Computed example of a mutant assay.
Amino acid sequence: MTGSPDRRTVVAVPPELRARLFPDGVADARLLDDPADPDALAAALPGTEVLVTSWGMPVLDGALLDLAPELRLVAHIGASVKFFVTGEVFARGVRVTQAGQAMARPVAEVALAFTLALLHRIHRFDHALRDGAEWSVAEQAPARHEILGCRIGVVGASRTGRAYIDLVRALGAEVMVSDPYFAGEPGVPAVPLDELLATSRIVALHAPVLPETRHLLGARELALMPDGAGLVNTARSWLVDETALLAELRSGRIDAAIDVFDAEPLPADHGFRALPNALITPHQAAGTVEARRRQGAIVLDEISRHLRGLPLRHEVTPEMLERMG
């Protein structure tokens, strides 16, 4: 990070993550090791022009902004800034940018890995062998399928959704999308959600967190999925009624691969942990070495562009904030 920031820049990122984002180190900028500490942030804000933010930030309300009259740019190392950026930020002429584009590829790759695992029932075989099942029992699984010619339904044509679509189409999948803001394109038709659920072998969720997407998939919607289908969720647990999904999985009728949960860390006694038809990971889909470095590079580039008076490449507008997950 040498070169761009100076003492007018505050980097509110935990040390371990900071080292992954900025492997060359952080020169001159003031460092906050705990972005969730409002007192430390308040003490650092006077004189700050650029604030680099991480997950867990306090809400940037009027009281905090009063301490930072010189603040001109908030550069977030993640995707959504909705949890801490308020309208007051924009009202005071502060620009906002984010590095979410850097995470689209790894999350899409994990969604692809989940898709292949569900199609080939890899998680079921792994569970059976680790649990000590006899070989003849362990080798039993529902019908397995290839991705070539597989009908995959994508809920949400977001950045990550589009990256996932490119990957699965490259492997020969037939893709359709349900998204109120997606009109379809050659080879990727737009369809109603119910039709997508009822006709897809794999359903992959890539929609944002919005009031209208709360429990987008509940008991009724999950029941539309064909027997043997698989659900992939690397987006947000917000999108699925977790209780309804647990009940559906316990029936053994469908499989699921899940990286996001209502309660994180996932409780040790959670029902998902014991199910052979559930593949679960601890909300780590975006955490590759390459993605973290891209996030840092985007933030550095955006700071440099701001200081040179150039347009930002990943700017967040008030209108975008309303549709941000």
Results as ranks from 00 to 15, higher is better:
Gly3Val: 01
Gly3Asp: 10
Ser4Glu: 09
Arg8Asp: 13
Val10Arg: 08
Val11Phe: 05
Leu17Cys: 00
Arg18Lys: 13
Arg18Trp: 15
Phe22Lys: 04
Asp24Ile: 00
Asp28Ala: 15
Ala29Asn: 08
Leu32Gln: 06
Leu41Arg: 02
Pro46His: 05
Thr53Ala: 05
Ser54Arg: 01
Met57Leu: 11
Val59Glu: 12
Leu60Glu: 02
Asp61Met: 01
Asp61Ser: 05
Gly62Asn: 10
Leu64Ile: 11
Asp66Phe: 09
Asp66Asn: 11
Leu67His: 08
Leu67Gln: 09
Leu71His: 13
Lys82Asp: 07
Phe83Cys: 06
Val89Lys: 10
Val89Met: 07
Val89Asp: 05
Phe90Arg: 05
Val94Met: 01
Arg95His: 09
Thr97Ile: 02
Gln101Thr: 14
Ala102Phe: 12
Ala104Phe: 15
Arg105Gly: 03
Arg105Met: 05
Pro106Cys: 02
Val107Lys: 12
Val107Tyr: 11
Ala108Tyr: 08
Val110Leu: 15
Leu112Met: 09
Ala113Phe: 13
Ala113Ser: 13
Ala113Cys: 12
Phe114Arg: 07
Thr115Tyr: 14
Thr115Gly: 09
Leu116Phe: 07
Ala117Ser: 15
His123Trp: 09
His123Leu: 03
Asp126Cys: 03
Asp131Thr: 13
Gly132Met: 05
Ile147Lys: 04
Gly149Arg: 14
Cys150His: 14
Ile152Pro: 09
Ile152Gln: 03
Ile152Thr: 13
Gly153Cys: 09
Val154Glu: 00
Ala157Asp: 01
Ala157Val: 05
Arg159Pro: 12
Gly161Glu: 02
Ile165Tyr: 10
Asp166Arg: 15
Val168Ala: 04
Leu171His: 08
Leu171Thr: 08
Glu174Pro: 11
Val177Asp: 03
Asp179Arg: 02
Glu185Trp: 12
Pro186Thr: 10
Pro189Ile: 04
Pro189Tyr: 09
Val191His: 09
Asp194Gln: 03
Glu195Cys: 00
Leu196Ile: 06
Leu197Gly: 11
Ser200Trp: 09
Ser200Asn: 11
Ser200Pro: 11
Ser200Ile: 07
Arg201Trp: 09
Ala204His: 04
Leu210Ser: 08
Pro211His: 12
Thr213Gln: 01
Thr213Ser: 06
Arg214His: 15
His215Lys: 13
His215Pro: 06
Leu216Ala: 07
Leu217Ser: 03
Arg220Leu: 00
Leu224Trp: 10
Leu224Glu: 01
Pro226Asp: 10
Leu231Thr: 05
Asn233His: 11
Trp238Asp: 04
Leu246His: 06
Ala247Leu: 00
Ala247Phe: 03
Leu249His: 02
Arg250Gln: 15
Arg253Val: 04
Asp255Phe: 10
Ile258Cys: 00
Val260Asn: 01
Val260Cys: 05
Ala263Glu: 14
Ala263Thr: 15
Glu264Ser: 04
Pro267Leu: 04
Arg273Phe: 13
Pro276Thr: 09
Pro276Leu: 09
Thr281Gln: 06
His283Pro: 14
Glu290Asn: 04
Arg293Ala: 08
Gly296Lys: 05
Ile298Arg: 02
Leu300Trp: 13
Leu307Cys: 01
Gly309Glu: 00
Leu310Gly: 06
Pro311Tyr: 08
Leu312Gln: 01
Arg313Tyr: 12
Arg313Asp: 14
His314Val: 02
Val316Ala: 02
Glu322Ala: 13
